[in-house]
């Protein structure tokens, strides 16, 4: 499929991302490097240990490749790399969080899963303006849990940005 097709598909998905939240929601939190992130538990399909990944040619670095999950072929995204830091050096102890976004299943490579958080909407604070290190659209907010700041991930935007980057001619060098 060509790029503009992909963009329009995904921007539609992104538009649906904002919803009016109501009762407390559950989130799965996990660590990536020194930071802590969380995603809505409704998106999480399962947690899997690190397994053999088949690399995909000419994709951005953070697309580690694809994985066989009981017969389904899923892409695995290195979350650390995707958020602008170094690539993960995966070991058996690393974990893949399988999430479902708009009928696609994708695996997020993270260091470890921490906890399941039950969060009221008013506990979530908006992303501060000063946080320049990370890509602000990728987060829906953040909260403080036991002195640790947890950033809530907007999965759809995480991938929409990916599409914009993915342009046939803009292939990052491998080595």
């Amino acid at each position: 499929m060509n790029q503009s097709q992909m963009e329009s598909d995904f921007s539609q998905d992104a538009d649906r991302a904002t919803e009016a939240p109501s009762p407390p929601r559950q989130y799965v939190s996990f660590t990536v490097g020194d930071a802590c992130y969380a995603v809505d538990i409704m998106s999480v399909r399962e947690i899997k240990g690190w397994a053999d990944i088949t690399s995909l040619p000419n994709q951005p670095d953070y697309v580690r490749g694809v994985l066989n999950l009981r017969g389904a072929v899923l892409p695995i995204i290195d979350l650390k790399c995707r958020l602008g830091e170094t690539m993960t050096d995966p070991t058996q102890r690393h974990v893949i969080v399988i999430v479902s976004i708009n009928e696609r299943q994708i695996g997020l490579l993270v260091d470890a899963v921490s906890d399941i958080l039950i969060v009221e909407d008013d506990q979530i604070k908006p992303v501060p303006e000063t946080n320049v290190k990370k890509d602000a659209d990728v987060f829906t907010g953040f909260l403080t849990e036991k002195d640790q700041m947890v950033a809530m991930l907007d999965l759809e935007n995480l991938l929409v940005s990916q599409i914009r980057e993915f342009d046939g001619s803009d292939i990052p060098t491998n080595q």
Binding site: T54, L56, A72, L74, Q105, I106, G168
Partner: peptide, 25 residues
Amino acid sequence: KSLETNYYNIPGVAGSAILGDGRVR
């Protein structure tokens, strides 16, 4: 297995297959 199910079409790749050793090729 089509790559488009969970990802997108990649130039040069028609799809993927799961081989006997469980690996995706």
